[in-house]
Design a protein around this nucleic acid. Structure first.
Lengths: 221, 221
DNA sequence: CGTCTAGTATGAGAATCCTAATTGTAGAAG
DNA sequence: CTTCTACAATTAGGATTCTCATACTAGACG
C-alpha cells in the first residue's frame, strides 16, 4: 500500500512517515502543492494524507483541483483549524475524512486503515446492517423476515448512507448524489427523508439508525 | 471534414465516395468490420456512414460496441432492410439517422450535412424555436412575452426534443435520458408528458409542436 | 443555571409524478 | 370500402416528492 503525505513541516512529516513505515506501508513525502501534484500525476497511490497549511497554496483548492481532474483516491485531511465550517468544507469538496491537529498516531493509523479498507472493498450488490438487508439490484429492502417498501428517494438515501457506513456525509454530499448537480441548500428535504427512514425502522430507535452530527451532517455509524 | 464509409459493396462505396469528394469532403473506405474498427481507432472522423449488411458481422453489433467504448461520432445507417423495427433498433443503439436503400445521393448528402452541422454546433444555453425560448441555465421557458411554467420532467423532455431538433427520438432514447438507466418500457409516461407539453403551447396546434412518428417515436421537426 | 440561537425535527398540505383504464386513430389486411 | 389491430391520446386518481410553517434541542454565552 502506497501512501502520499502532503505536509510542509518536516517534523510532522517524519513522525507520520516513520509510524506508517513501521506498519508496513510505503510512503512518499511531498512538502508542497507542486510536489504533491507531481507525485500524484505518477499515480499508484492508495491514500493521500493532506495537510491544509501548505506554504504555496491552500490545500482545499488543491483537493478541489484533483477532484475536478478525476483523481478519486481517498484523501484524509489534517488540519490545525478545526472549525466545524472547515470540516464541512473539506468533506464537501471531496475529502474522505478529516483529522484535527493535534492527533495521536494511533488515531491517524486507524483512520488511514479505515479508508484503505473501504477503497479496496468490492462494490457489493447486497448491503447488510443491523438486520437490514438491502439488495441494490433487485431494489428491495427487508428487515429480518419482513420486507420493507421504500420509495426511490428513501432507497437512494439509505443506500448512500450504508455505502458510506462509518463516514459522516454532509447535506451537500447527499444532495449531489441523489439530485445530481444542483440540490437546493435552502431546502430541508434531506432532513425530511432522514426522518422517514428512521420511522421505517422503529426497532433501531436507540441507538438511532441514522446519527445526526450537528452542524456537519448525517451518518450510519 | 473527414467521413468514414463502412460498406462492403465496392460499387455503392465508390458511388458515395465520389459524390462526397465532389462536395469537398475527405472520405475513407472500410469494406468490413475489422477495417472499420481500425480506421475508427485512429480517430479524427466527423461522421460515419455505416451499411448494415457487412460480410464479417452485424453492423448493429458493431455500432453497439462503438457506443459502449465511448465513441460518439455521429453515425448514419444505410440499410436494405427497412422495417420499422430495424429503424427503431438502430436509433436505440445510438445511430443518429437511418437511411433506407435505395437512396438518392442528394438525400444522403442532405442527411450527412445535417449530422455534421449538428455535431459542430456549440452547446447552446438558450434554445429557441417558433417563439419558444428555453434558457437552460436559468431553467426558464417563455413564449413570446409570457413566461411558461414547466415542471422538471416537462422541462427535461422539451430540452431533449429541442436539442435534437429534426431527429426522431425513440421512447427508449428519451426514457434513458430523463430517467437514466432503466425506464420501464411498459409505461406510457412519455406519451403523457408529450401531451402536457403540447397543451402548454396551444398556439402550435397546426402544425403540431411535437410530431408523432407512429411506431418510432417523437420529434420536433 | 437560565437564555439565546443556530441547527434539527416534525407534520400537514400542495405540487408533481406516475399508473392504469379507456377512448381514439392510422395503416394493414381482407 | 370495411374491419381489424397495434399504437397513440386522453383522463382521472393514487403515490411520491417537495415546500413550508412550526416546534424542538444542543450547545454557546453570560
Amino acid at each position: 500500500m502506497r501512501i502520499l503525505i502532503v505536509e510542509d513541516e518536516i517534523k510532522v512529516a517524519r513522525f507520520i512517515e516513520n509510524g506508517l513505515r513501521e506498519n508496513a506501508y510505503t510512503t512518499k513525502w511531498a512538502k508542497n502543492c507542486v510536489e504533491a501534484n507531481d507525485y500524484l500525476a505518477e499515480g499508484g497511490y492508495d491514500l493521500i494524507i493532506l495537510d491544509l497549511g501548505l506554504p504555496d497554496g491552500d490545500g482545499l483548492d488543491l483537493l478541489r483541483d484533483w477532484r475536478t481532474c478525476g483523481f478519486n483516491e481517498p484523501v484524509l485531511i489534517l488540519s490545525a483549524r478545526d472549525s466545524l465550517d472547515d470540516r464541512v468544507k473539506g468533506l464537501n469538496i471531496g475529502a474522505d475524512d478529516y483529522l484535527p491537529k493535534p492527533f495521536s498516531f494511533t488515531e491517524l493509523l486507524a483512520r488511514a486503515r479505515s479508508q484503505l479498507r473501504r477503497s479496496s472493498q468490492v462494490r457489493q450488490s447486497v448491503l447488510e446492517y443491523r438486520g437490514i438487508k438491502m439488495d441494490l439490484l433487485a431494489h428491495t429492502v427487508s428487515y429480518g423476515d419482513r420486507s420493507i417498501d421504500l420509495t426511490n428517494r428513501e432507497f437512494a438515501l439509505l443506500e448512500i448512507l450504508l455505502q458510506n457506513k462509518g463516514r459522516v456525509l454532509t447535506r451537500t454530499q447527499i444532495g449531489e448524489k441523489i439530485w445530481d448537480a444542483h440540490y437546493d441548500m435552502q431546502s430541508n428535504l434531506i432532513d425530511v427523508y432522514v426522518r422517514k427512514l428512521r420511522n421505517m425502522f422503529p426497532e433501531h430507535k436507540d441507538p438511532p439508525l441514522i446519527k445526526t452530527l450537528r452542524g456537519v451532517g448525517y451518518s450510519i455509524p
